[in-house]
Structures are given as C-alpha cells and as structure tokens.
Amino acid sequence: MATMETLQDLDAPLKSAVIDLLYRLADDAIIIGHRGSEWTGFAPILEEDIAFSSMAQDDMGHAHAFYQMLHELGEPDPDTNVFGRKLDQWKCASLVSLSSERDWAMSLVRKYFYDVAESLRLDSLAKGTLIPLAQLARKLSSEKKYHLMHGHMWMPRLGKGTSESHQLMQHAVDTLYPHALGMFESTDADSLLDQAGVCPQENDLQQRWVAEVDKILSEATLKVSVQSSPVYGGRVGEHPDDLATLLENMQLVYNLDPSAKW
C-alpha cells in the first residue's frame, strides 16, 4: 500500500478522516490524563500516588502530541482546542469521561481498559501508511509499555486479593466494560482510514482488545457479564454529565480571559 510521507500528502476526504481519528485519540488521552491527575495527593499509597500521577502526565503528553498534529492539519492550536471547545465538540469515549468518584478499583480498571486500547491503536498506527503518525505512534508506545505493566501487576493482585478487593474490582468491571466497548464506536472515517492503510477498522481493534483483556480478567478471576452491550455516543459528541463537570473545571481559568498570555 502506498505510504504518505507527510501530512500534505493527504487528499481532502482522507485528511478529514485523519482529523476525526486524531481528535478521538487526543480527547481520550487528555481526559484520562485529567482523571488520573485527580488522584494526585489522594491515591491509596504514596508510591501509587506518584506512579499514577506520572502516568497521567504521560497521557497528557500523548494528547499534546496529537493536538499538535491536528494543528499542523489546520485545526486550532492545542490550548485553544482543549480549553476553548464546547461539550458537544469533544470526541472522547464515555469510559474516560465518567467521574472516578475516588473509587480506586474503578480508576485502576478504567486506566487498564484504556491502556490496552491505546496500546493496540499505537501498534497498528505504527505499521500504518501515514508516516508522521506512524513515527509518533512508535515514540509514544514506549511509555505505554510501563502503563500496561502497571495494569498487568494490579489487576490479578486485586482480583484475587481479598473478597473485598475482588468485589470492588468485579463491580468496576461490570460498570466499565460497556463503556470500554464504546471506545470502538465506529465513525464515518473508519472505512476510509482502513482502505488507505492508516489504521484498522474499529471493530477489528475491538476484537483484539477483547481477546487481550479477557486473558487478564480470567487471570484476575474477574468475569464479563454476558449482557454487556456497548455505550456509544462519545465519538459523535454525546457525553455523560460527568464530562460537562470536568470541562467546566478544566476550562474555568482559561475562560476568565481567553486572550491572556501565559
């Protein structure tokens, strides 16, 4: 398949498909990063507080890189994009939008579900035909390796820890699995991106995600409810109220004076 060496090689329809893809990647990453940062100073143990905050910074860094690429494609600069966009303009999945409610099991399972998905996306983008994005994906995947290791360590330990930890983890899986499937909501961009070899279709990624997550869940003695059907809407700007609250908080200072120089 023909490779595209620069972003300028994209024709108009493919360019808007790539923009759609980058918004999904960037918005998921900045919001999970923000959710992670909510644990700074509050995580159950000091070591985990530092690890979780550090991973949140990694995720925000990934988001920044994707927003930067969007800017190169003619979209607003990263600050304007993150602090200036209205709720219905966001493309993140409900998995990352939900409030963590200071529930550690929910935050850990959510982060793990997200990390497996992002890791699979980065792996496939790295093999894709859009060279600048492939190079970026390769660079970012080194940090994801640690995030996955972190999840792989915690999931079985808490799933098999005590009856209380098992119950909390099972509750988190029951609540979050449908939202995790929502990460693979297909969009109009799907088939075009697939045909051009930029990245595979969402349902293809979902199958890989399910297989990967199933392995760890069974190791952790956690089960997926058979009635788990996906929660969609995030990719087309329909979000839970939790995201509105998050944006209000995150955009508060910027909106006092959007023209202020920092």
């Binding site: 985990e48 530092i50 690890a51 550090s54 972190h150 360590m153």
Partner: peptide, 20 residues
C-alpha cells in the same frame, strides 16, 4: 526504597519513584 506487596510490584513502583 519503596513499600510494595511483593518484588514485582516493587519494581513497578520503583520505576516511577526513581526513574521518572
């Protein structure tokens, strides 16, 4: 040093405490 439930977890914790 780090606190951890086992050695593998200690490695995971140590990476962020001392290598970030």
């Amino acid at each position: 040093a780090v606190h951890a439930p086992d050695a593998e977890m200690a490695l995971v914790m140590a990476k962020e405490q001392y290598c970030r």
